[in-house]
Structures are given as C-alpha cells and as structure tokens.
Design a protein around this nucleic acid. Structure first.
Lengths: 220, 220
DNA sequence: ATAAATTTTTAGCCTCGACTAAAAAATATT
DNA sequence: AATATTTTTTAGTCGAGGCTAAAAATTTAT
C-alpha cells in the first residue's frame, strides 16, 4: 500500500518517540512533533490504524505495528543517508541538514536509496551519530558509542573510556562516573557542545565536549 | 510567494510546451502532460493567473509571465541537475532517471542545488542533451548540438558535421541533408536509437544513431 | 471521593487539487 | 451561413489533511 508524505511523517515521528520509551505514545506528543493540533492527530491515528500500521485505542495512545515500524525504519534510513550525503558530499555542516533531509526522506525509489548507500560506503551512523538501518530495516549494533555522539534523552550505560590518563579518570571519579553508571544526556549546548548529563537519575551535571567524546556508552 | 508541488508542475509543463511553439498553450495540451482533466487545468490556470505567474484569458490559452518563467526555469534547472547526478554519480542509465528527477525537482533548497551544481562541475546539459539553466535562470547558448542529442519535435537547422569522411558526406547528400536544412526529429526508436527525421518539412526518413551523432545542429 | 484540570475525541468547517456532467464558446464542415 | 464537432469553462462533488469549539474521558488535586 502506498504511503503519503503525511503518513510517512506520522509513522516516523511515532517511531522516534518510541525510541525513548516503552510506553504508548500520547496524541499530544505526536501533535507537538508534527506541528499540528491534537484533533488532527486523532484523525490521522484512526486512518493509520485502519491501514494496519499502528495499534490505536481511543484515549490509550498509539504504538507502531511491525508493518508500521518497517515503513518508519525505511523513512529513517532515507533521512539519515541523505544527511550523510549532505554533509560528506555537499559540504553542509551537521546542523544545516535536517530540514533538507526532511524533504529528501520522502523520495520514493528503492533503487536510488540503495545506490546512495553504496556511494556513501554503507555508513553506520548519520552525522549526528544516529544509526542508519540497513536495507532490510535492521539497525546496526553500535556496540560502543561516544557520549558526545548521543542524542538528548536517550538512556545509556557507561561501558568504558577512550583515554585512560590519570587526570582524566580522576575527573570521572569526581563526577561520580564509573563503569555501569546509567546516563542520560539532558541537554546539548550548541555553543561549546558541552552536555548536561544526569548520572544514575541524579540532577544533571555539566560535562565538556572534550570529556564526553572520551566516554564510551551502550544504548538502552 | 511559496509554490506548491502542483503549481510547480503546471509551470514546468507550460514552459516545456512553450519551448516548441510561439503560440499560446491550450488547456488540453496542459491536461495531457499533467495527466489531469481539462476542467482541473482551467481551475489551476485561474489560480496561477491570480498569482501573476501566467497570462490567461478564458478560451485563449496560456503563457508564462516573466515571473512564472523564472519559477519554471528553476524547476527545470533542478530537474536536469538531479538527472546528471543520477546518471553520473548514482550509475543510473539515461532512461531510468526521469521519474526520480520528477520528485527531486521539488526539493526546496537554493543552497543544495547550487552545491549540487558545483559537485557536478557545472554541467551545461542533462543526460538527454537538454540545456541546464544557470543559477540566474539563464540557459547556456549551446551553439552546436548533436542531432542525436535532440528531443522529439524540436525545430532545428543543420549547421555542420562532426566527421568529414567522404562516405559520410555522400550519405548525407543522398539523404538530402545539406547545410541550412531545416530538421525535426519526429521519433526516437529506443531499440537502436535511430531517429526518424523530417527534412525541410518532408515526410520523415530514418537515420541511424551513428549518423545522427555526427550531425551538428542549432536549435530554433 | 469529588472536584478541578488536563487530555483526547467528536462535530463541523476549510482549502487544495482532483473529478464528472452539463453548458458555452470556438472551430470545422457542408 | 447554418450546423456539427471539438474545446473549454462552469457547477457541483469528493478525499486528504488540516483547523476550531465543544464534549467526553482521564488524570490530578483537594
């Protein structure tokens, strides 16, 4: 079944919201990200449910079905591959590409996206560090990710460090950062790329980009 | 003023039709190329006229205004640059790219299209030999074009040959092809790329691709 | 446990861009 | 010149995807 531009956007946004929680996604949350009103979202969710792409019960929120997730992943794949293209080949900065990729992600051509993937040398992540699903819709296992590449509000666990100099490890200790610590990036400050991180659900503390890029973490 | 997907398509198609005639473009001609019905075209022409992009009087056909032509040229520029990209960088064949370019031509980003132009080394023509407007919307003067690169139903004049071997010129003479002859390609046969050409308004004759690609012509 | 506040849904309406059927204008034919 | 044919426009309708205002359900607070 063909998917419209609008449908693809809804599925993508529900997917994104599902990444950071196991709960059902609320109508309002979707409305905020789609830049529409709750009433419009309700309409669309009913339509998506009819097509079998989401499970939706009134007042109960929404979740993607397996089929819906497949479509969402293909949109996400296209979005992220185009972002790599824009940065690596077109020379855009990482902060300029989102809006353009929002348009390019709806171009319909399996052949094109697979050729693009090859042209870009099958990248595993986009310029923001988000993983790119392969053509089967499978997200690559990113065993280790740098804390500096993590998005806001993603749960993760500290798995190691990329530098083991004494002063660096002393700093980590002082910040209460130890192996196995549960981390969540609450805020990324564009000015100096410093991050505000909650450690084991505590109040967030500031960590410089220099430190963050030497911390290895595992998602989830 | 922002242009919708549909509006851009109409302007582009009116532009294409205007290329091969000086007369006003008929509602039916537009309907055929947009794959819509005449009634729908009438509606849209009224809207385009209101926005100042076409001159339109009921029953009199339509022409682009200067502003309308500017928009059309920017869509054509995008379409043709993306076609070059698809063939040169993505490895598509010249006959596979039209549908994908029909989608890509509506991506809205001046910055992207100019970077793409640069990435492709400022090509003058697309893979089908059509000229690519520059960023000011000016079509390059293609002083000489190969007959083999010409589209169907474009008037042109024989301006020279790319090969001057005796047997080649003898063949041209036999076909009544001489300098200054008025030519129009009536049909391109995909099988062997041979062309059926009307010479000085005569009944069309068949010319092989091998011959056509050695004939230099001037448009118009 | 009730009342208050918030979230979600319903109902009705709007614009865009298409459609069909019928009317009107333009063009072609005798 | 009158009639037949073709082209174009008008009138009315439809679906997609939005909106607002009001109603209903859920959640939070007292």
């Amino acid at each position: 079944m063909a998917t419209s531009f609008a449908e693809e956007n809804y599925l993508k946004i529900i997917y994104r919201l599902s990444e950071s929680t196991l709960e059902d996604i609320s109508t309002n949350a979707v409305a905020e990200l789609t830049q529409t009103k709750a009433a419009s979202v309700t309409d669309m969710l009913r339509k998506l449910a009819e097509k079998g792409w989401v499970n939706y019960q009134k007042y109960q929120g929404v979740r993607l079905t397996e089929e819906g997730e497949k479509i969402a992943l293909s949109v996400v794949r296209k979005h992220r591959l185009w972002e790599v293209f824009l940065v690596e080949k077109m020379g855009f900065n990482w902060d300029e590409v989102h809006e353009i990729a929002e348009q390019l992600e709806h171009i319909e051509s399996e052949a094109l996206i697979n050729k693009l993937d090859e042209f870009l040398d099958f990248p595993k992540t986009d310029p923001h560090g988000d993983p790119i699903p392969n053509k089967e819709g499978i997200l690559p296992e990113l065993s280790y990710v740098l804390l500096s590449d993590l998005k806001e509000n993603k749960a993760c666990v500290l798995m190691g460090v990329a530098k083991d100099s004494a002063i660096f490890l002393q700093l980590l200790t002082r910040l209460n950062l130890s192996l196995g610590a549960k981390l969540m990036v609450k805020e990324i400050n564009p000015f100096d790329r410093s991050v505000s991180v909650s450690i084991n659900d505590s109040e967030p503390v500031f960590i410089s980009h220099e430190v963050a890029k030497n911390i290895l973490i595992k998602l989830g």
